[in-house]
Write a protein that binds this DNA or RNA. Sequence first.
DNA 1: CATGAATGAGGGTTCATTCAT
DNA 2: CATGAATGAACCCTCATTCAT
Lengths: 238, 238, 238, 238
Amino acid sequence: MIAAFPQSGPTMPAKPTDHRPRVAAERRERMRRRLIESAMIVFADKGIGASVIADVVAAAEVSQGSFYNYFRTNEELLAAVGDELSGEMVQLIEPVVGDIADPAVRVATAVRCYLHLARSHPLLARFLAAAGLRMLVHHNATFRYLPADLEEGQKQGVFAAVPLDIVLDLVGGAGMAALDRMARGRTPKSYPDQIAAALMRTLGMGVADAERVAAGPLPKLAFGADSLLARAQARAAA
Amino acid sequence: MIAAFPQSGPTMPAKPTDHRPRVAAERRERMRRRLIESAMIVFADKGIGASVIADVVAAAEVSQGSFYNYFRTNEELLAAVGDELSGEMVQLIEPVVGDIADPAVRVATAVRCYLHLARSHPLLARFLAAAGLRMLVHHNATFRYLPADLEEGQKQGVFAAVPLDIVLDLVGGAGMAALDRMARGRTPKSYPDQIAAALMRTLGMGVADAERVAAGPLPKLAFGADSLLARAQARAAA
Amino acid sequence: MIAAFPQSGPTMPAKPTDHRPRVAAERRERMRRRLIESAMIVFADKGIGASVIADVVAAAEVSQGSFYNYFRTNEELLAAVGDELSGEMVQLIEPVVGDIADPAVRVATAVRCYLHLARSHPLLARFLAAAGLRMLVHHNATFRYLPADLEEGQKQGVFAAVPLDIVLDLVGGAGMAALDRMARGRTPKSYPDQIAAALMRTLGMGVADAERVAAGPLPKLAFGADSLLARAQARAAA
Amino acid sequence: MIAAFPQSGPTMPAKPTDHRPRVAAERRERMRRRLIESAMIVFADKGIGASVIADVVAAAEVSQGSFYNYFRTNEELLAAVGDELSGEMVQLIEPVVGDIADPAVRVATAVRCYLHLARSHPLLARFLAAAGLRMLVHHNATFRYLPADLEEGQKQGVFAAVPLDIVLDLVGGAGMAALDRMARGRTPKSYPDQIAAALMRTLGMGVADAERVAAGPLPKLAFGADSLLARAQARAAA
DNA sequence: CATGAATGAGGGTTCATTCAT
DNA sequence: CATGAATGAACCCTCATTCAT
């Protein structure tokens, strides 16, 4: 009987009574995504301290009141954008750096990927620059893995034995400054690599080694067509 | 007799009406200082993007209208605080670093002084952290002299030959991150020196050299009792 | 049965969601009218140059913020009152004067109607007097038709051949002065007719002719119960 | 003894102790005049309802506080300008019209003089237009003499026997409209005369007679070099 | 008296949030 | 849930007036 009248399942069409909730849930999800897209654009434009709700709902073509069915506060909205973006960036970067054995190369590559993504997506750079240090450090997979990578590198002797706090602060600060620079104007294509090399020196590598591990080809990184960033970019262009 | 007791003349004590402008100017200057003190505290508390005027006049125990006799906008006020603070910091740091011949030691010492000052004056750290990259880079003597110092160091071969833009971004970013960290919680006394050493590595020095130039005794740096910072600290404590 | 009791269709009573917009639009329109009523009273009391918004929202028993959902500026509000009033006055006067063949009688009758309306509605007189020459000339059907009527009268030889500019100024000035007088105190019932007769003389008619065309019975002119003026009068009385 | 040591007298130099008060009174008078000049300009520019005191003291180069040693309110200031101007206009016009026997010519000439003065002094036109009906009617010698002149004309049969109130209103209204027009843009040299002729018709004269009494040469009317208007014009030009 | 800073009431405007429909 | 008008607190700013010097 169960097989004959499955209540639910991935391949089964939902019963008529199931249909409405599913459609509703999809509608709800679409709306949420629209709001997040709009919010990313508005935060990038006006900063995270500005009055955004009116602009966000206008950009999302949603009523003021509806907003509060999805987000209670400004911060919740900002966090949602950050979570979503962070996830998408991790999904692009993780596969590239996950298999790298050398911790120095791994760290350098992660930084380079992160910054190259920002550099080739101005909206992303502007949002991250506006979001600030806290979000960079909090919502970033690079930072979650960084302590382990750094320790590993220190144990292997490729990084100098300096307190982790210090270098974490410096990586964060350098990242913010780089994002700010890229958000604010044109930078050469090598800019992310140079920042990465400098960071490798900060970690204690020699000049030549630092340059080496921050060089070499990177795979093409591209956001999916229905990713938040792609959608937001398209909407921002219009 | 008349010649012996002249009723007026260039060397005579001023007539009553002569000291009135001076007294008025002093009153005005005191008021301006009160506002700047209060503004520093409020900016440190609420950030530079917030609505501060109401809080500033409340802290200064002055009427709303008076504010506009001194500053037209938020930005003017922020600039005034920045200018004043910057001047005071420069007056403390310049004598210490001005005579140092070695550019590496000079840069490291300037950074250490700057950060030590911030570390021992939490209000300063919080204000500078809130004020952000732009103010750090714009209203700071360290940054004005930095390009020349870096070039000199690069010519002498103690710093790696890296584009100046890049290193300026990195120094700015590191400074911001360090200020943010110190503003946000306790840090060990060695924190500024460790940041400075790391920066020296970033600039291309070896680990040992970097540590060496960022070590050694620093003279005691203390703000004058009627400096903006001292007054603001006293007021903030109350 | 389904065909007999269709669930929806063009002729069916609207679904619940269909009448919501209509209800909302009606609410909005009522609010707008409340504001315009209040504004008319306040403008009549304080003049058009004064700060009215606070008084208007107080009179309308509406929050400050709501005002800005309807009008952006003082001038927009004034224009709205003027448009509405002008429309209502035209709707009363046009039918009376539209069929009059003799241009002299037509002009005189229009002026008499206009002034009689003001005289019997002190709030109207006070508002128009406060609004001033510009509004009188701009938002008044009498003034739109006046040039043509005057030219016709001049061609027929009943009016003197005087530049139109001059007579338009004179009619406007006379109207303003009459409104001011009526707004400021009691005037005899014949006052509008005497003003009209004097204007006819100004236009070049002889004394007897002028008196003749500005005499004779006028139909009763009364604003509808839900006209702006009626509502404002009722509210002002309370 | 009295002749030998006169305490005061028109031709005697004042005693040293008398000197100070006289100088002070002159200073005071100069200052008052400066304020009135500035006020006239500011009223003409911004209207009589606007916030003027700051502009007036700025234009007069006087301190805010001093203002209140001369005028208590806005209205007092406006009245002072009006009184002064009115006096000066009367002093120019009275000699011209005082000797005219024919009341029609007398009235027409007074109106013409008044409007010609305004037309050739844009600052005057702008001030009078801004000041409005009340000031025109209240502070104007033409209006003080007008009732008598009109009665005389009516008795002589040159004016129609219509209520004085009515024609006074119309003269005031026409004057305001004419001032407004002249304040607002260029008008032909004959404009004042045409207005005057129209007013003569309003009073009951035939077209030809009206034109006749409002024609003919007028003496040149010029304000003295140290009149309020002359000083204000000079200051406004600067 | 002259000065000009200090005052504070008042006006204009924005915007996050609520709520009836 | 979606809607969008209503709300009111908060903010910015002006300006007539006062008052110590």
